[in-house]
Design a protein around this nucleic acid. Structure first.
Lengths: 230, 230
DNA sequence: TTTGTCCTACATCTTTAGGTTGATAATTTA
DNA sequence: TAAATTATCAACCTAAAGATGTAGGACAAA
């Protein structure tokens, strides 16, 4: 009879040779993981990822030579299906945010107990995203902070709420980079009508030109009514 | 001798009277919480929040009358220092994302065990943000998905990388809604020089006008080099 | 029915934006 | 040093955008 679960194949990237060796030994002791590669070079790590298609990568993001975050981004773009855990010495909210933003499935501090690293690996290997509780809080502080301005306006203060349905359509097309002609063509109305709408939009949003209107729209949750993030 | 910790004061808002009663009983059994209010009306809930300044609010976000998310947003805007946990019947990624975006400090499913609700309350009351593991994964899937396009471009593909330092400055001012005159004034150069830069920017970003340039910049992580989210 | 809002449309005018060519000086790179 | 890049500015022109006023028809609310 075979094993129930095949071992997860792990690639380690850490410019600190000592730490790299330590983590490697730690993981080797775990029966559920095989270390298929370990390197102190980010570029070499990217090549090893291409070559071995590991299940998991532990990436140190505090490297001088090549930025670990950038390496994560490059590997993510290769779309190898590998799940990456960021290893960092710092619990800096901005770092955590950026790592998660570019697709890291976990973020673990180097100072954390080895058991926690293994736990994070188990979680991430099983398809989840893992962030230690303390870091999750950090992340959300940063996350919520970044929306503070947008949220701070009440519905009466958000001038977008004074637009008519048609004006919203026009503004939507403005936020896609259309000029008068483009909008007129898409809405099957004359260019002069579009001008009228656009001018009314400027009045309502208290702006002087289309760029400012677009910026106001984006900064005040206009696109969010349809889809995703700002 | 007094108690070590004073009890946390909780306000309950849930349009389902049965569920409201159930949660109230559950919490009343917990020695560390006082229920200072319980209502089936979102508007009444907002008033009670103003009146009693609770430490914690459990807010049902699946209410027909007034949207619970909207109620959360209104309470957050009051800046009472109250920490809100969203209660929902659905583990929909978009709902979770929106709740956290507007400042909820937790999101708990109604179907979860009561012990988990209490745990979430303990965590949130102690200043943390709490999301059950499964929902954290959901959140991050959605979160990372929303940045997929922006991340998908390699540094060679991201045309912003071809801009010179000066052009970046000009583009930055463009993304703040400045016209030629405004940019010229801020950079202490002539308007014609600004025009030259702007035209070069258009060439490099392969766009036709400033609105498209601004949109390209925002959609490709330009603002993120300085600060927060898109 | 009247009032008000919204969508449509046009004319006119002023201002801004955009495209092009060319030129100088400083800086960087080969 | 020579060549390339960058930053600066000018003049000129066309196209587009923005400001303002007017107005008819549809529709809904008072």
């Amino acid at each position: 009879m075979r094993e129930f679960k095949r071992k997860s194949r792990v690639l380690l990237i850490d410019d600190n040779a000592d730490h790299l060796r330590g983590v490697k030994e730690l993981i080797t002791l775990e029966s559920s993981y095989d270390v298929v590669g370990a390197t102190t070079s980010a570029n070499m790590g990217i090549n090893l990822a291409k070559k071995y298609h590991p299940d998991l990568i532990l990436m140190d993001i505090n490297m001088p030579e090549k930025d670990g975050l950038q390496a994560i981004q490059e590997i993510e773009r290769l779309d190898l299906g590998v799940r990456i855990i960021a290893l960092s010495a710092y619990d800096d909210a901005d770092l955590i945010f950026r790592a998660m933003k570019i697709g890291a499935k976990g973020y673990v501090l180097k100072t954390m107990a080895s058991a926690q690293l293994i736990y994070a690996m188990d979680e991430v290997a099983s398809g989840k995203v893992y962030l230690p509780t303390a870091l999750t809080s950090r992340f959300f502080e940063y996350f919520q902070n970044s929306f503070k301005e947008e949220n701070s306006k009440s519905s009466e203060e958000n001038l977008l709420n004074y637009l008519t349905a048609r004006e919203e359509e026009v503004l939507d097309l403005l936020t896609q980079g259309n000029n008068y002609k483009g909008i007129a063509g898409k809405l099957f109305i004359s260019e002069t009508t579009v001008k009228t709408h656009v001018n009314n939009i400027f009045q309502k949003l208290q702006v002087n030109d289309r760029t400012q209107a677009v910026l106001y729209a984006l900064n005040n949750g206009f696109a969010n009514r349809r889809k995703i993030v700002a």
